[in-house]
């Protein structure tokens, strides 16, 4: 079964864009037939990933974020691409242990909600692609 693209959007890497990105993620997750509860959590995770790109990958400089959502067999696949300097895979390692200490909460939420998290090699000479996967709800893969 081939990958079916559900969403492809490109935004400037700016905090004012986060609201629009969340709206598009919610719409796509409705199409994928996730529950309201899962839609809330997936929207949160994509928002956290975009936030990390804005804060750490671009570090306040201007740039672009491409979000693609695919449906493949029993999974939804989320690709977040930036065009900043390549980051080290160690940036995706969880370090935080105490919720009351600052830092690392966004990454912790990403791992809690998603079934699979990895960095893919960039398509060009710069940038990063974060791949996130989450199982689809039962039944939805047959209906799409």
């Amino acid at each position: 079964m081939s990958m079916k693209r559900i969403l492809h959007v490109e935004h400037s890497a700016c905090t004012s864009q986060l609201c629009q990105i969340r709206d598009k993620v919610r719409e796509a997750c409705h199409v994928l037939m996730y529950s309201d509860s899962d839609i809330n959590l997936i929207t949160l995770v994509i928002d956290e990933a975009c936030t990390n790109i804005i804060r750490y990958a671009y570090g306040g400089e201007s740039g672009r974020i491409i979000l693609e959502i695919f449906q493949h067999e029993n999974e939804a696949i989320f690709h977040l691409q930036d065009f900043a300097k390549c980051i080290d895979k160690s940036c995706l390692e969880l370090r935080k242990t105490n919720i009351l200490e600052p830092g690392g909460l966004g990454l912790q939420l990403i791992y809690q909600v998603m079934d699979f998290v990895q960095l893919l090699p960039p398509r060009g000479s710069v940038g990063n692609i974060l791949e996130l996967k989450k199982h689809l709800p039962k039944g939805s893969q047959n209906d799409l």
């Binding site: 929207t43 949160l44 928002d47 956290e48 919720i99 009351l100 600052p102 909460l105 966004g106 939420l109």
Partner: peptide, 16 residues
């Protein structure tokens, strides 16, 4: 209707 980790971190800071 929504709060992200930056909002949560703000609450934690104020709580502490």
């Amino acid at each position: 209707s929504y709060i992200d980790s930056s909002g949560i971190a703000t609450l934690v800071e104020a709580y502490n």
